[in-house]
């Protein structure tokens, strides 16, 4: 992998972020109400509105407003929340940190569970183990996360069983054991849904690879079944799986929003929902931008991982 490639990808990341920032800003501009009407409420007088607009700079052309907002973002200033009156930056970043913990745990678990499941299904293709995995996958894929989350909540967090807390959050710095206890159900929900997807992907890739010439050649050199499976087939099947996992990060972001709402988990998704409900524009802009950038970074990482793992790819 060359430095040139890295620079190229990083610059395209920056361009993506810029475009996203314009879109995010543009959409909030299209909304019928602006910050001034939000603050002053429905019955505000024209005069009051005009004064506030002037004070907030909302009477200026859109591109000037955009520039103010964007240069602020570059300085780490995301504006002031219309709902709480506090700075958006720290709030959204701490919420983002909480969500990241949720997502990372889910990704880790997904990788640990779905890859072996996919391999198992491919190796036992057409046999009961394969069908079992397929059945579970279908189930997982077809269950919307809010249904699954609600089910888990009603079952494992019910007063009768009470295995896990139904909501809330404890920071890891405070008590990591209780923190884990609190994130268990949200993570579990995300894991189940994603595992279904990724394991199906790994299975189909494995099935293809197992039929390829070099796997057959390896088998016909008398290599053990295990070696053929793990040394020859698996590494070549994981590459496409990495792309899928990276794309799933996009899904994870959406999933996180729903799951956080169900479990009242103080993450970026919950912040976003609150922001939408309260028309808290600065918070909405910051959250949307952050998520888009996260997605772009995840894809970049997947590309880089691909480059490191697949020896054939030469980045020019």
């Amino acid at each position: 992998m060359s430095l040139g490639f890295l620079l190229k990808r990083l610059s395209s990341l920056v361009v993506t972020a810029l475009i996203v920032s314009v879109i995010v800003f543009g959409i909030t501009q299209l909304l019928p109400a602006n910050a001034a009407t939000m603050i002053l409420g429905e019955y505000a007088t024209e005069d009051a509105l005009a004064t506030l607009n002037a004070r907030l700079g909302l009477d200026q052309p859109a591109w000037v407003q955009y520039w103010h907002w964007f240069s602020g973002v570059l300085h780490g200033d995301f504006g002031i929340s219309l709902r709480t009156g506090q700075a958006v930056g720290p709030t959204i970043l701490s919420a983002f940190g909480n969500s990241a913990i949720l997502a990372l745990f889910a990704l880790l678990l997904v990788s640990l569970v779905s890859i072996p499941l996919g391999v198992l299904a491919a190796a036992k293709r057409g046999r009961p183990a394969d069908m079992g995995v397929s059945l579970l996958s279908y189930l997982g894929v077809s269950l919307p996360e809010f249904v699954l989350a609600t089910l888990l909540l009603a079952w494992l967090a019910s007063p009768a069983i009470g295995l896990f807390p139904a909501s809330g959050y404890v920071p890891f710095s405070e008590d990591w054991l209780r923190a884990l206890h609190h994130i268990a159900l949200p993570v579990l929900t995300l894991t189940i849904v994603l595992t279904a997807h990724v394991s199906r992907m790994v299975r189909s890739e494995m099935v293809d690879t197992l039929e390829s010439d070099f796997v057959r050649a390896a088998r016909l050199r008398g290599l053990s079944r295990k070696r053929v499976l793990y040394r020859h087939a698996l590494p070549n099947s994981l590459l496409p799986a990495i792309t899928v996992i990276a794309l799933d990060i996009g899904y994870l972001i959406g999933g996180v929003i729903v799951v956080e709402e169900v479990f009242s988990f103080p993450g970026v998704g919950r912040q976003l929902i609150l922001a939408i409900q309260n028309r808290d524009l600065p918070m909405l802009q910051a959250g949307a931008l952050l998520m888009a950038v996260t997605y772009a970074v995840a894809n970049l990482l997947a590309d880089l991982a691909y480059g490191v793992l697949d020896k054939r790819i030469q980045f020019e």
Binding site: D213, F214, A217, R231, P235, N236
Partner: peptide, 11 residues
């Protein structure tokens, strides 16, 4: 086998 180009594991 016939096709040497695919007979080796690329990784």
């Amino acid at each position: 086998l016939q096709n040497a180009s695919t007979a080796l594991n690329p990784t």
